[in-house]
Nucleic acid binder design. Structure first.
Lengths: 246, 246
DNA sequence: GGCGCCAGACTTGCATGCACTTTTGCGACG
DNA sequence: CGTCGCAAAAGTGCATGCAAGTCTGGCGCC
């Protein structure tokens, strides 16, 4: 698999990679929500390691944009702004277009079955919690990227996938992911038939659909608590500004 | 402004970011060459910090693909394979196309002047060492990305830029970068005139040209010493295989 | 009654120490 | 003479300790 000597996190007794994966998944499934604090002590204790490792893991996640790191402050789960999310989806479209272009007509029977199995799982999870749907949908895109064998595509698509998943759980309305599942299926079919253009168009449409569901409205969820409260301060306290953003 | 609270490396007394930048630049300018060892001790001593910080910096660079990290082994400057380089340039084209699309017709007078000043610097450096040319050319693309204001684009274009620069210094022939400078100028002109399609086409062409100069031949520089020796072992030692790759 | 300020707890920033792994040099053996 | 093996040296993996910075609750002042 492409995950062995590839990145900084992998190995035999690799507790670092373990922690990273656990945190990523927890964030994606909304067990950890934007703004939640991630103290090094607590993390380390929870995973049975020292602060050193926890800190290192937070650094990784920070560079992936999943947690926010500020000097001398407790790390928190990232709270993407609407603009960041929009940018993310833009880049995502470009990258995943590359993925389908590379993959069209080159998937083995085995790979197609793996993808379809994943989609079946998605379908099963539809009745369950939304978090599972988001995770499985994200994994579909990552699996696709992994099949290209291009480390850089794998890395970027994974990273953006997680961040988009985070965004979805932030801004998205409780969507029925039924259509998304079907879209996944259609994409695989187009890839299997070797129709690159069609696969590309389907992927574009799919991601635009996801984005439009995710970013229903710019005002859906403002970035900052102070913004949430803005409409309420017409006659309240007034011009007292304690801190810019917290 | 976009560089302050953006990533994990920034701050006031930020020695970590300092080390990262220094190492990135050293690698880009070929002061550190692929395969060079980067022991934590030596790095820390050189920069006046402890191994902890050096290690952390190496982790960052590792996740950026500039250094190779293997468990219990000394970190080394990455030696990209030809295939990785090819993938890198593919992704780069997609991303920088996004950059010019966003920028076309939206550059301020000030920004255009900044870009042209950078290009002038490139022209001046043409007589000097190749490493300076590569660095300045890379910085042009990064500056462009920064002007989009999109954190994700900035990060990815920067990272890929550095890695492509590394590749260039690995595989590239001693090219006259004259045309590249002119191409940069043309791109800025197209952006300033607001002609997105033309800017896009120019950027595509430019990057393809760079890639073709960089990846002159698949056999130019194989990844592994063992591969270099492969043609010589017809009648030499024989089937003795000490290690897969070193 | 509200506001500001200060001290204690809490958390991060970072260096150092120790155990474990890899590497290397050297001597013994085939 | 070439090869293997072992032991010292070098380097990483990681926990812990201490200094410095940040948050919180309570007290005094206006």
């Amino acid at each position: 698999m492409a995950a062995d000597s590839d990145e900084s996190e992998s190995g035999s007794t690799d507790r670092l990679g373990l922690i990273c994966r656990a945190l990523r998944r927890a964030i994606l499934e909304r067990a950890l929500r934007p703004g939640d604090k991630l103290p090094e002590d607590a993390l380390g204790e929870r995973f049975g390691v020292s602060r050193t490792i926890a800190r290192y893991a937070l650094g990784q996640l920070g560079s992936e944009g999943l947690v926010e790191l500020r000097r001398n402050r407790i790390a928190v789960v990232a709270t993407p702004s609407w603009e960041e999310a929009r940018d993310l989806f833009d880049v995502r479209v470009s990258l995943e277009r590359l993925v389908v272009k590379q993959l069209a007509g080159r998937l083995t029977r085995e790979q197609i079955e793996e993808l379809e199995a994943g989609i079946a799982e998605e379908r099963e999870a539809q009745g369950g919690p939304e978090s599972a749907s988001i995770r499985l949908a994200t994994e579909f895109h990552i699996t696709l990227a992994e099949m290209t064998g291009s480390p850089i595509l794998i890395r970027y698509v994974s990273e953006i996938g997680y961040r988009c998943g985070l965004t979805l759980s932030l801004f998205g309305r409780p969507h029925s992911s039924e259509c998304a599942v079907n879209e996944h299926l259609e994409i695989v079919a187009a890839l299997a038939s070797g129709d690159a253009d069609r696969a590309c168009a389907l992927m574009d449409h799919h991601l635009e659909a996801v984005a439009s569901r995710a970013l229903v409205s710019e005002a859906a969820k403002p970035r900052d608590i102070m913004d949430v409260l803005a409409p309420y301060v017409t006659d309240a306290a007034g011009p007292k500004k304690r801190r810019a953003g917290g």
